[in-house]
Design a protein around this nucleic acid. Structure first.
Length: 196
DNA sequence: TTAATGATGGGCT
DNA sequence: GCCCATCATTAAA
Protein backbone atom coordinates (compact mmCIF):
# COMPACT_ATOMS: atom_id res chain seq x y z
CA UNK A 1 0.00 0.00 0.00
CA UNK A 2 2.67 2.46 0.99
CA UNK A 3 4.74 1.74 -2.08
CA UNK A 4 2.42 3.47 -4.53
CA UNK A 5 1.72 6.63 -2.54
CA UNK A 6 2.29 9.73 -4.66
CA UNK A 7 5.44 11.47 -3.45
CA UNK A 8 6.46 15.08 -3.19
CA UNK A 9 8.12 15.09 -6.60
CA UNK A 10 4.75 14.40 -8.20
CA UNK A 11 3.30 17.54 -6.62
CA UNK A 12 6.31 19.62 -7.66
CA UNK A 13 5.39 19.26 -11.33
CA UNK A 14 3.52 22.11 -13.05
CA UNK A 15 0.17 22.57 -11.31
CA UNK A 16 -1.93 22.16 -14.45
CA UNK A 17 -0.19 18.86 -15.14
CA UNK A 18 -0.72 17.67 -11.56
CA UNK A 19 -4.40 18.60 -11.76
CA UNK A 20 -4.83 16.67 -15.00
CA UNK A 21 -2.89 13.62 -13.84
CA UNK A 22 -4.71 13.38 -10.53
CA UNK A 23 -7.83 12.38 -12.47
CA UNK A 24 -7.95 8.59 -12.21
CA UNK A 25 -5.80 8.34 -9.08
CA UNK A 26 -7.13 7.15 -5.73
CA UNK A 27 -7.89 9.26 -2.69
CA UNK A 28 -7.26 7.06 0.32
CA UNK A 29 -7.98 7.65 3.99
CA UNK A 30 -7.82 5.24 6.91
CA UNK A 31 -9.67 6.16 10.11
CA UNK A 32 -9.73 3.76 13.07
CA UNK A 33 -8.57 0.90 10.81
CA UNK A 34 -11.39 1.53 8.40
CA UNK A 35 -10.59 2.42 4.81
CA UNK A 36 -12.30 5.07 2.74
CA UNK A 37 -11.22 5.36 -0.87
CA UNK A 38 -12.39 6.81 -4.14
CA UNK A 39 -11.19 7.45 -7.65
CA UNK A 40 -10.60 11.12 -8.34
CA UNK A 41 -12.78 12.15 -11.28
CA UNK A 42 -12.70 15.96 -11.16
CA UNK A 43 -10.10 18.57 -10.15
CA UNK A 44 -9.40 22.27 -10.54
CA UNK A 45 -6.07 24.11 -10.64
CA UNK A 46 -5.48 27.38 -8.75
CA UNK A 47 -2.35 29.20 -9.81
CA UNK A 48 -0.27 32.14 -8.64
CA UNK A 49 -1.38 35.44 -10.17
CA UNK A 50 -4.80 33.83 -10.60
CA UNK A 51 -7.40 36.21 -9.11
CA UNK A 52 -9.67 33.26 -8.33
CA UNK A 53 -6.95 31.74 -6.13
CA UNK A 54 -7.20 32.41 -2.39
CA UNK A 55 -3.50 33.19 -2.27
CA UNK A 56 -3.54 35.82 -5.03
CA UNK A 57 -3.82 38.69 -2.52
CA UNK A 58 -0.98 37.56 -0.32
CA UNK A 59 -0.51 35.24 2.61
CA UNK A 60 -3.09 35.18 5.39
CA UNK A 61 -3.71 32.93 8.36
CA UNK A 62 -6.20 30.92 6.29
CA UNK A 63 -4.16 30.36 3.13
CA UNK A 64 -0.62 30.10 4.52
CA UNK A 65 -0.48 26.35 3.88
CA UNK A 66 -0.62 27.07 0.16
CA UNK A 67 2.69 28.92 0.47
CA UNK A 68 4.33 25.91 2.09
CA UNK A 69 5.73 22.69 0.69
CA UNK A 70 4.06 20.61 -1.98
CA UNK A 71 2.03 17.56 -1.05
CA UNK A 72 0.25 19.04 1.93
CA UNK A 73 -3.51 19.33 2.33
CA UNK A 74 -5.10 22.77 2.18
CA UNK A 75 -8.54 22.50 3.76
CA UNK A 76 -10.70 25.57 4.20
CA UNK A 77 -14.16 26.30 5.57
CA UNK A 78 -16.67 28.19 3.46
CA UNK A 79 -20.34 29.18 3.21
CA UNK A 80 -20.64 28.79 6.96
CA UNK A 81 -20.99 25.03 6.75
CA UNK A 82 -18.76 23.43 4.14
CA UNK A 83 -15.17 22.37 3.77
CA UNK A 84 -13.15 22.13 0.54
CA UNK A 85 -10.01 20.08 0.10
CA UNK A 86 -6.95 20.93 -2.01
CA UNK A 87 -3.46 19.55 -2.42
CA UNK A 88 -0.64 22.07 -2.44
CA UNK A 89 1.73 22.07 -5.42
CA UNK A 90 4.97 23.92 -6.26
CA UNK A 91 7.98 24.72 -4.11
CA UNK A 92 7.73 26.76 -0.92
CA UNK A 93 6.84 30.37 -1.57
CA UNK A 94 4.84 29.58 -4.71
CA UNK A 95 1.20 29.32 -3.66
CA UNK A 96 -0.57 26.97 -6.05
CA UNK A 97 -2.91 24.05 -5.39
CA UNK A 98 -5.34 21.57 -6.88
CA UNK A 99 -8.93 21.45 -5.62
CA UNK A 100 -10.42 17.96 -5.54
CA UNK A 101 -13.99 18.44 -6.76
CA UNK A 102 -15.36 14.91 -7.06
CA UNK A 103 -14.47 11.26 -6.60
CA UNK A 104 -16.08 7.93 -7.43
CA UNK A 105 -16.58 5.92 -4.21
CA UNK A 106 -14.65 2.63 -4.04
CA UNK A 107 -14.23 1.49 -0.42
CA UNK A 108 -16.08 2.44 2.76
CA UNK A 109 -19.31 3.37 1.03
CA UNK A 110 -21.45 2.64 4.08
CA UNK A 111 -19.29 4.92 6.21
CA UNK A 112 -19.53 7.63 3.57
CA UNK A 113 -23.29 7.30 3.52
CA UNK A 114 -23.37 7.74 7.28
CA UNK A 115 -21.03 10.71 7.18
CA UNK A 116 -23.20 12.46 4.60
CA UNK A 117 -26.33 12.47 6.80
CA UNK A 118 -28.76 12.90 3.94
CA UNK A 119 -32.41 13.29 4.93
CA UNK A 120 -34.21 12.89 1.64
CA UNK A 121 -33.72 9.96 -0.67
CA UNK A 122 -32.04 10.53 -3.98
CA UNK A 123 -32.55 8.60 -7.18
CA UNK A 124 -28.77 8.46 -7.60
CA UNK A 125 -27.64 7.65 -4.04
CA UNK A 126 -24.14 6.46 -4.91
CA UNK A 127 -23.30 9.29 -7.27
CA UNK A 128 -24.65 11.86 -4.83
CA UNK A 129 -22.24 10.75 -2.12
CA UNK A 130 -19.10 12.47 -3.43
CA UNK A 131 -19.90 14.50 -6.59
CA UNK A 132 -18.93 17.89 -5.18
CA UNK A 133 -16.05 19.40 -3.22
CA UNK A 134 -17.99 19.79 0.04
CA UNK A 135 -19.80 16.48 -0.40
CA UNK A 136 -16.56 14.52 -0.67
CA UNK A 137 -15.20 16.29 2.39
CA UNK A 138 -18.28 15.23 4.34
CA UNK A 139 -18.09 11.66 3.07
CA UNK A 140 -14.36 11.34 3.89
CA UNK A 141 -14.62 13.25 7.17
CA UNK A 142 -12.25 15.95 5.97
CA UNK A 143 -12.27 19.14 8.03
CA UNK A 144 -9.91 21.86 9.23
CA UNK A 145 -8.07 19.42 11.48
CA UNK A 146 -6.45 18.04 8.30
CA UNK A 147 -5.29 21.46 7.09
CA UNK A 148 -1.53 21.32 6.58
CA UNK A 149 -1.22 17.54 6.85
CA UNK A 150 1.56 15.95 4.79
CA UNK A 151 -0.09 13.69 2.21
CA UNK A 152 3.08 11.99 0.99
CA UNK A 153 2.91 9.52 3.87
CA UNK A 154 0.54 8.31 6.57
CA UNK A 155 -3.16 7.47 6.55
CA UNK A 156 -4.34 10.28 4.29
CA UNK A 157 -2.69 10.04 0.89
CA UNK A 158 -3.23 9.70 -2.83
CA UNK A 159 -2.33 6.40 -4.45
CA UNK A 160 -0.89 6.09 -7.92
CA UNK A 161 -2.72 3.85 -10.32
CA UNK A 162 -2.14 2.87 -13.88
CA UNK A 163 -5.06 4.42 -15.59
CA UNK A 164 -6.03 5.52 -19.02
CA UNK A 165 -8.60 8.12 -18.19
CA UNK A 166 -9.91 10.36 -20.91
CA UNK A 167 -9.46 13.77 -19.30
CA UNK A 168 -11.63 16.63 -20.49
CA UNK A 169 -10.89 20.30 -19.89
CA UNK A 170 -13.57 22.71 -18.74
CA UNK A 171 -14.05 26.06 -17.01
CA UNK A 172 -13.89 26.24 -13.25
CA UNK A 173 -17.01 26.38 -11.12
CA UNK A 174 -18.09 28.88 -8.49
CA UNK A 175 -15.66 31.67 -9.33
CA UNK A 176 -16.14 35.13 -10.84
CA UNK A 177 -12.70 35.83 -12.29
CA UNK A 178 -10.64 34.02 -14.91
CA UNK A 179 -13.84 32.23 -15.85
CA UNK A 180 -12.52 31.62 -19.36
CA UNK A 181 -9.60 29.45 -18.23
CA UNK A 182 -9.96 25.72 -18.88
CA UNK A 183 -8.40 24.76 -15.57
CA UNK A 184 -10.96 22.16 -14.53
CA UNK A 185 -10.26 18.53 -15.43
CA UNK A 186 -12.68 15.61 -15.32
CA UNK A 187 -13.24 12.19 -16.82
CA UNK A 188 -16.77 12.83 -18.09
CA UNK A 189 -18.26 10.13 -15.86
CA UNK A 190 -21.52 10.27 -13.93
CA UNK A 191 -19.51 10.94 -10.75
CA UNK A 192 -18.43 14.42 -11.92
CA UNK A 193 -20.19 17.35 -10.24
CA UNK A 194 -21.29 18.67 -13.59
CA UNK A 195 -20.32 18.38 -17.20
CA UNK A 196 -19.49 21.35 -19.44
C1' DT B 1 -36.92 19.55 -15.77
C1' DT B 2 -34.79 23.98 -14.05
C1' DA B 3 -34.72 27.95 -10.83
C1' DA B 4 -34.75 30.20 -6.42
C1' DT B 5 -33.76 30.21 -1.70
C1' DG B 6 -32.19 29.51 3.06
C1' DA B 7 -28.67 27.67 5.89
C1' DT B 8 -24.65 29.39 8.57
C1' DG B 9 -20.10 31.36 10.07
C1' DG B 10 -15.08 32.50 9.08
C1' DG B 11 -12.35 35.78 6.44
C1' DC B 12 -11.46 40.09 4.73
C1' DT B 13 -10.44 43.17 -0.94
C1' DG C 1 -20.78 44.78 6.40
C1' DC C 2 -20.16 41.92 2.54
C1' DC C 3 -18.20 38.04 0.35
C1' DC C 4 -17.73 33.17 -0.18
C1' DA C 5 -13.65 27.44 -4.98
C1' DT C 6 -21.49 24.98 -1.69
C1' DC C 7 -25.52 22.11 -0.91
C1' DA C 8 -30.31 20.51 0.08
C1' DT C 9 -34.79 21.68 -0.27
C1' DT C 10 -38.70 23.83 -2.14
C1' DA C 11 -41.16 26.11 -5.86
C1' DA C 12 -42.23 26.74 -10.50
C1' DA C 13 -43.20 25.16 -15.05
Amino acid sequence: MENNVLLREFYLQPTLKVAKELVGKTLYRKINDRVLSGKIVETEAYLKNDPACHASRGMTERNKVMFGEAGRAYVYFTYGMHHCFNIVTQKEGVAEAVLIRAVEPIEGIEIMRRNRKLRTTNHKPLTNLTNGPAKLCQAFGIDKKLNGVDMTKGDFVILDSKNNETVKKATRIGITEYTDKLWRFHNNSEFVSRIS
